[in-house]
Design a protein around this nucleic acid. Structure first.
Length: 887
RNA sequence: GGGCGGGUAGCUCAGUUGGGAGAGCAUCGGCCUUACAAGCCGAGGGUCACAGGUUCAAGCCCUGUUCCGCCCACCA
C-alpha cells in the first residue's frame, strides 16, 4: 500500500495542493472535440472581475463542476468555459475609490488615462477570483479563459450593436430614464431596486389662475412642483369636470399650467388630482406626451436643482424639498401632511435614490427579440428548472420595456456610433470610420457613452466561442448544454442571452437553465458583513477541506429558493469525507492486483454469497439514484444517495460483514470478498468524484493495478443484473436479527465485550435454516458465545426478549432480567403494533376498499395484517412469561 | 395591487406519478470491538399550519383561512 494512505486521518491540505498542481500542469481539463462523441458544454456565469469568491459563487461553481465532471466521465466532449465580466459601474467604482484615497477623481486623469488605470487594476487584481475558482477544483478549460472586454468579445459586441442598429432594433432617443445622481449614469429598469420607505404625502393647494378657487394635489416629492407643467384629473371624475377651461397658477413660481384629463389618474388616490412633472416622473412623462405638455427639467445630473428652479437653484434635491415644504406652509398652500409608506427606487450599485429624468440615451427595442425567447421556452427548446420559474419568466417577458443600454461612465464597451459634425449624420460601424458616410467629412465624434455591462454578457455563450467567426468550437459546443445560475439574474442576464442567442445564432444559447437558490445563513438571513454572518468559502475550505465544503453545498442544494447554510453541517460532512478515507484505507489493506483478476465473478453475481449479492444490488440502486439526481438536477439527492449508501450500507454492514471472510481461513471466500470489495469501492469513488474530486482522485491513485485518472474513468452504468430484491429481503431479515440481539445487549446493560448466548425461534418456513446458516457472522457481529435457531421449543421466561415481526430472540440472563423494564419495552411495542393493526383492519373491513382498491394493494394489506398479528401474539406470550417470572 | 414559494421531529430540510411518515445535525444511554472516538452500538422524538372537499385511501389533488419569505408593479 502506498505510504500516503497510512495516514489515519485524511489530510486534505497537502492532497488538494498536489492534485491542483497536477491538474494545472497537465492541462487536464482542456476540451476535446473528437468526432462522433456527444458534446457537453457550459459557459460560466462570469463573475465580476472585482469579485472575491463568496459562498454563492462556491455553490454555483460546484454545481457546474459536478455536472461537468459527470459528463466528462460519461465520455462526452466536455467544455466548461471560464471567464470574468468587466462589470462597468462596479469596477469603475473600485478604481474611483482608489483614486479618491489619493485625493483625486477620474476627471483629474481624463478618460484615456482613467481607462488605462482600470486596465492596470485588472491586470494586478483582476485574477483573484479565477485563482479562487481553481482552488475550488473547478474543471474549467483554463486555456479558454475569457474576459468580456477581450478583443474578440469586443468585436462581437460591435457586430451585434451594428446589426441591431441597421435592423432598426437599436435607436437613440430622448426619453425618461432612471438616473443615478451619484454614479452619473442612466440605469436600466431592472438596475433599480424598489424599497419600501417611510415618507410623507403632502397635500398642496393649487389655485386656479383666475383666483376663483383651488384644487388640492397630493405628492411625495414637493420639490418636483418646480417642474410641473400641468395638473391631471380623471376624465370621468365629476368633481373636476368644471376645470376644463381653468388654468392653474403654481404656488411659489406663479407659472400658469393647464389641467388635462387622463384616464391614468386614480380617482380614489389622494385627492384625485395629480400634479404632472413630465421631466422627473415616468408616469408623468407618459401623461405629458399624451397631452403635449412641456418638459421642464429642474434637477441636474448630480441631483441638484438647476437654473430652471429659480430661487431654489443650487440646492440639493432633498434640501430643496425641506425649503419648499417650509415655504408652502408659510404661504398657506399646505393643506395637510400625512405619514406615507411608499416604494422608493434606489441604484442597485450604490443605493442612492434614483432620479427619473429625461435624457438622450440608446435603447434596444426588445419586443421582437423577447418574442423569440418566449417562443423558444414555450416550445421547450429551452427548459427551465425548477419549473416554478416559468410563470415568472413569462410575466416578465410579456411586460418587457425597451432596454436602455447606454451608460454615462468610462469603463466599458464604447458605443460604436459617430456623429458627423458637418452634416449631423450618425455613423454606426463595426470599424472606426474615418469619414462620414454621407458627406465625407472627417469631423466625426464618437459617442461618449459605453454600453450596459449586460449587453456584452448577453453574448457570452457565443462570443466566448469565437463568434462572429465561424469556428469549430461553435459547431461543436453551441448551443451549450445547461446554464447554471442564481435566479436573481434571470432577467438581467438569462433572458437577454436567450434573445441574443436566438437572434444572432438562430439557435438557443442553452438547452437547460438550472436556477439555484440563494445561500443564506442558518436563520435564513442574508449574509452581510455588517451583520457578521458571512460564511467565507475560502476560510471554510482551509478549515474543513474543499471536498467537505463542496459536498455540503451539494447536500443543501434542493430545488428551492433559499439554502440556509449552517457551518456545523460542514463539519459533519468533513467527517463523512474522513469516513470514506478510512473505509478506503481498510479496503486497501486487503485488495491487491489479484483482486482485479477475480472480478469476472461479478458477471454471475448469483453464484456469490448473499452479502455480496446484497451489496451489488445496493450498488446498482445507488448508481441509479445518483444518475437520476445528476440528470434531473436534484443535487441534494446525489449527495444523500451517496452518503446513505457509503456510510450506512457499505461501511456499517458490508465491511463489518466481510471481515469474517477477509480474516478467515477460507481462501476462496476471502478472494471473492476482495474482488467484490474492490469493485464496490471503485464504484463509490466514481460516484463521488464529481462532488469530491480531490479525495477520490487521491484514493483512486493508490488502488491496485495500472489505471488512468479517475476523472477520465467511465461513470458507472446501472447494472440491472446486480439488482436483486430477494437478496435485499434476506439481508433485511438477518439485519433484523442482529439489531434485535444488539438491542437486548444495550437495553439490558450487558457490557459490549461480554459474550452471551442467544436463541432465535422462527417459524418453520425455510427462514430458520437460512438464519442458522449465517450463525457465524451473526455471532461475530453481536459477540455471541452460542447461537441457536429453533422452529419450536421451550421459550425461556428468564430471558430478555426481542420480537422482530414473527421471530423471537432470547438472551438468557439467569435471574438478571429486569422484569419491569422488559414489560415496559413490550408494552410500548404493543401500542405501536396495535395502532398499525387498527389501521390495517380498518381498511380490510371496509367493503368499498376491497371492491375498489387494486388487488396488489389489498394483498399488501393482508400481508401486513398477518405479520402484525404474529408480532402481537409473540408480544402477548412474552408478557405472560414475564408475569410468571415476576411472581 | 399582482404573482411566486414555503409552514413535516428540538434545528435545517427531503418526501418524483395518492397506497404502511424519512435524513442529517442535535438529544439520551452504553462502548477505545484488530479502517475510522472526525468512530461504533442502541434508544427516544412528528395532530405533516388550520378548516372543509374529492377518493376505498390525502403530507401529496381541489377550495378557503392564517402565518412567514421573496419577486414584480406607473396609486402620485
Amino acid at each position: 500500500m502506498d505510504k500516503r494512505l497510512l495516514n489515519k486521518a485524511y489530510e486534505f491540505a497537502e492532497v488538494e495542493n498536489r492534485w491542483l498542481q497536477h491538474w494545472t500542469e497537465n492541462r487536464c481539463f482542456n476540451a476535446e472535440m473528437e468526432e462522433g462523441r456527444p458534446a457537453f458544454s457550459i459557459v460560466i456565469p462570469p463573475p465580476n472581475v472585482t469579485g472575491v469568491l463568496h459562498v454563492g459563487h462556491a455553490l454555483n461553481n460546484t454545481m457546474q463542476d459536478v455536472l461537468t465532471r459527470y459528463h466528462r466521465m460519461c465520455g462526452d466532449n466536455t467544455l466548461w468555459v471560464p471567464g470574468t465580466d468587466h462589470a462597468g459601474i462596479a469596477t469603475q467604482n473600485v478604481v474611483e475609490r482608489q483614486l479618491a484615497s489619493e485625493g483625486k477623481d477620474r476627471h483629474d486623469l481624463g478618460r484615456e488615462k482613467f481607462v488605462e488605470k482600470v486596465w492596470q487594476w485588472r491586470e494586478e487584481k483582476g485574477g483573484t477570483i479565477i485563482h479562487q475558482l481553481k482552488k475550488l477544483g473547478c474543471s474549467c478549460d483554463w486555456s479558454r479563459e475569457r474576459f468580456t472586454m477581450d478583443e474578440g468579445l469586443s468585436a462581437a459586441v460591435r457586430e451585434v450593436f451594428v446589426r441591431l442598429y441597421k435592423e432598426g432594433l437599436i435607436y437613440k432617443g430622448d426619453y425618461i430614464v432612471n438616473w443615478c445622481p451619484r454614479c452619473h449614469t442612466a440605469l436600466a429598469d431592472d438596475e433599480v431596486e424598489h424599497e419600501d420607505t417611510r415618507g410623507k404625502l403632502y397635500h398642496i393647494r393649487y389655485p386656479f389662475a383666475d383666483g376663483s378657487g383651488h384644487v388640492v394635489v397630493a405628492t411625495t416629492r414637493p420639490e418636483t412642483m418646480l417642474g410641473d407643467t400641468g395638473v391631471a384629473v380623471h376624465p370621468e371624475d365629476e368633481r373636476f369636470s368644471h376645470l376644463s377651461d381653468v388654468g392653474i397658477r403654481l404656488p411659489l413660481t406663479d407659472r400658469i399650467v393647464p389641467v388635462v384629463f387622463d384616464a391614468h389618474v386614480q380617482r380614489e388616490f389622494g385627492t384625485g388630482a395629480l400634479k404632472v412633472t413630465p421631466s422627473h416622473d415616468r408616469d408623468d412623462y407618459e401623461i405629458g406626451r399624451r397631452h403635449s405638455l412641456d418638459l421642464l427639467k429642474v434637477i441636474d445630473d448630480k441631483g441638484v436643482m438647476n437654473e430652471a428652479a429659480g430661487d431654489y437653484a443650487g440646492l440639493d434635491r432633498f434640501e430643496c424639498r425641506k425649503k419648499i415644504v417650509a415655504d408652502l406652509e408659510r404661504l398657506g398652500f399646505m393643506e395637510k401632511v400625512e405619514e406615507y409608506d411608499h416604494a422608493v427606487g434606489n441604484c442597485y450599485r450604490c443605493k442612492t435614490v434614483v432620479e427619473p429624468t429625461t435624457s438622450l440615451q440608446w435603447f434596444v427595442a426588445v419586443a421582437p427579440l423577447a418574442a423569440k425567447a418566449v417562443a423558444a421556452v414555450k416550445e421547450e427548446r429551452i427548459r427551465i428548472y425548477p419549473k416554478t420559474w416559468y410563470n415568472t419568466f413569462y410575466s416578465w417577458m410579456d411586460n418587457i420595456r425597451d432596454w436602455c443600454i447606454s451608460r454615462q461612465i468610462w469603463w466599458g464597451h464604447r458605443i460604436p456610433a459617430w456623429t458627423c459634425e458637418q452634416c449631423g449624420e450618425i455613423v454606426v460601424e463595426t470599424y472606426d470610420p474615418e469619414s462620414c458616410t454621407t458627406c465625407g467629412s472627417k469631423q466625426l465624434v464618437q459617442d461618449k457613452d459605453v454600453l450596459d455591462t449586460w449587453f456584452s454578457s448577453a453574448l457570452w455563450p457565443f462570443s466566448t466561442m469565437g463568434w462572429p467567426n465561424t469556428t469549430r468550437e461553435l459547431a461543436t459546443f453551441y448551443p451549450t448544454s445547461v446554464l447554471v445560475t442564481s435566479f436573481d439574474i434571470l432577467f438581467f442576464w438569462v433572458a437577454r442571452m436567450m434573445m441574443m442567442g436566438l437572434h444572432f445564432m438562430d439557435e438557443v444559447p442553452f438547452r437547460d437553465v438550472y436556477l439555484h437558490a440563494l445561500v443564506r445563513d442558518k436563520h435564513g438571513k442574508k449574509m452581510s458583513k455588517s451583520t457578521g454572518n458571512v460564511i467565507e468559502p475560502l476560510a471554510v475550505m482551509e478549515q474543513y477541506g474543499t471536498d467537505a465544503m463542496r459536498f455540503t453545498l451539494i447536500a443543501f442544494a434542493a430545488q428551492g429558493r433559499e439554502i440556509k447554510l449552517d457551518e456545523e453541517r460542514i463539519e459533519g460532512y468533513r467527517h463523512f469525507i474522513n469516513k470514506l478515507w478510512n473505509a478506503s484505507r481498510f479496503s486497501l489493506m486487503h485488495v491487491d492486483e489479484k483482486s482485479l483478476e477475480g472480478q469476472h465473478i461479478l458477471d454471475t453475481p448469483g453464484s456469490l454469497p448473499l452479502v455480496h449479492q446484497w451489496i451489488l444490488s445496493r450498488t446498482a440502486a445507488t448508481v441509479a439514484d445518483v444518475r437520476r439526481g445528476l440528470d434531473e438536477y436534484h443535487f441534494n439527492e446525489i449527495a444523500s444517495a451517496n452518503y446513505q449508501f457509503i456510510w450506512h450500507e457499505f461501511c456499517d454492514w458490508y465491511l463489518e460483514w466481510i471481515k469474517g471472510d477477509l480474516f478467515g481461513d477460507d481462501e476462496v471466500a476471502a478472494a471473492q470478498a476482495r474482488s467484490v470489495l474492490l469493485v464496490v469501492l471503485e464504484t463509490i469513488l466514481k460516484l463521488m468524484h464529481p462532488i469530491t474530486p480531490f479525495v477520490t482522485e487521491e484514493i483512486w491513485s493508490v488502488l491496485p493495478g495500472e489505471r488512468s485518472a479517475l476523472m477520465n474513468s467511465a461513470f458507472p452504468e446501472v447494472r440491472s443484473d446486480w439488482h436483486n430484491p430477494e437478496a435485499e429481503e434476506q439481508m433485511a431479515l438477518l439485519m433484523g436479527v442482529i439489531t434485535g440481539i444488539r438491542n437486548i445487549r444495550a437495553e439490558s446493560d450487558v457490557h459490549p465485550s461480554a459474550r452471551i448466548d442467544a436463541t432465535v425461534i422462527c417459524p418453520a418456513d425455510g427462514r430458520a435454516d437460512f438464519i442458522a446458516s449465517c450463525g457465524g457472522t451473526i455471532s461475530d457481529m453481536t459477540r455471541l458465545n452460542s447461537f441457536a435457531v429453533q422452529t419450536q421449543g421451550e421459550k425461556p421466561a428468564d430471558a430478555a426478549t426481542y420480537i422482530y415481526k414473527d421471530i423471537e430472540i432470547f438472551v438468557p440472563l439467569k435471574g438478571l432480567v429486569d422484569v419491569a423494564a422488559e414489560l415496559d419495552k413490550l408494552s410500548r411495542e404493543r401500542v405501536k403494533v396495535e395502532a398499525k393493526l387498527k389501521q390495517v383492519n380498518g381498511k380490510l373491513e371496509n367493503a368499498t376498499f376491497l371492491a375498489k382498491a387494486p388487488q396488489q394493494v389489498i394483498d399488501k394489506e393482508l400481508e401486513k395484517k398477518q405479520a402484525l398479528d404474529a408480532t402481537l401474539e409473540k408480544i402477548a406470550e412474552a408478557e405472560a412469561r414475564l408475569q410468571t417470572l415476576a411472581q
